[in-house]
Amino acid sequence: MEIFLFLVGYFVQFGASCILLYKIWKHKSIYGLSIDTQAAYLLASVSRCVWSMETRLVETKFAYLELCLSTAVAVGLSFMCYQFLHTAPKQSTPFLRVYATCPAALVLAFFFHPGDEWFSMQIWVSYTMFQEAMGLLPQLWLMRKMHEVEPLTSHYVGLIVVARFIRMCFWGKMYFLGEHFLQLFFADVLHTLLSADYMYLWCRKLQYGGRLIYSQSAA
């Protein structure tokens, strides 16, 4: 049952990615989207392909299905970002680019991962969680610079955060079962805290409608 809770989070993320694919296909543009966020999620998906087969996820065929779908959509989004690169005039600051967040996530994973071994598969698990947490930062930064967030993009980011919240529930469930993955739980908590102000605005948009204004002046 716990495994399905873990997978539900990634199926929500898959749904969010499909929304983004539709947006790019419809508008033939990635204006307002972060290339670095998509590159970070692609790296996280590849990392999951490495360690997923060493976990209890292999106990259910849904894990294979989810991993194949998530990897395929991550590749598709990265390809479309490259294809329409000329439509994205603005990107994040250097310290939020994927070439900065990837090494940072690796360092965090090396020092904060389950188990006592310095070199183990758990490092890749931890890297995935930290890369996903840091991967959303370029998109949040870009949306602040864009002032108003386009509706489909707002739903994409909102669903990504919902997916992480579901996974937090999974870590909590595992904790009460006696399996403590506090380092991985911390990565998802970090992700949620960094996007808390955005989620407040997104929930208000869902409740009252209207535009989503996400900028320094509106914060």
Rank of each mutant, 00 (worst) to 15 (best):
M143W: 10
M143K: 07
R144S: 05
R144Y: 05
R144K: 15
K145R: 15
K145Y: 07
K145W: 09
K145E: 14
K145T: 07
K145A: 14
M146W: 04
M146V: 05
M146K: 08
M146S: 05
M146A: 08
M146C: 08
H147V: 11
H147Y: 09
E148I: 15
E148N: 10
E148S: 14
E148K: 15
E148H: 12
V149L: 08
V149Q: 07
V149F: 07
E150V: 03
E150D: 13
E150N: 02
P151F: 09
P151K: 08
L152F: 13
L152W: 15
L152C: 12
L152T: 10
L152I: 08
L152Y: 14
T153H: 12
T153K: 10
S154Y: 04
S154D: 05
H155N: 08
H155M: 07
H155K: 09
H155F: 12
Y156G: 02
Y156D: 01
Y156Q: 00
Y156L: 00
Y156S: 01
G158S: 11
G158L: 05
G158P: 14
L159F: 13
L159D: 02
I160G: 03
I160Y: 09
I160A: 04
I160Q: 10
I160T: 06
I160M: 10
V161S: 04
V161W: 01
V161L: 06
V161N: 07
V162P: 02
A163C: 08
A163I: 05
R164G: 15
R164Y: 13
F165V: 11
F165T: 09
F165P: 00
F165E: 02
I166S: 13
I166F: 09
I166H: 13
I166Q: 11
I166V: 15
I166W: 09
R167N: 13
R167D: 06
R167Q: 15
R167W: 01
M168A: 06
M168E: 07
M168D: 04
M168I: 08
M168Q: 08
M168W: 01
C169T: 11
F170P: 00
F170I: 01
F170V: 00
F170Y: 15
F170L: 00
W171I: 03
W171C: 06
W171G: 08
G172Q: 11
K173F: 13
K173M: 14
K173C: 11
K173H: 13
M174P: 07
M174R: 15
M174N: 08
M174H: 03
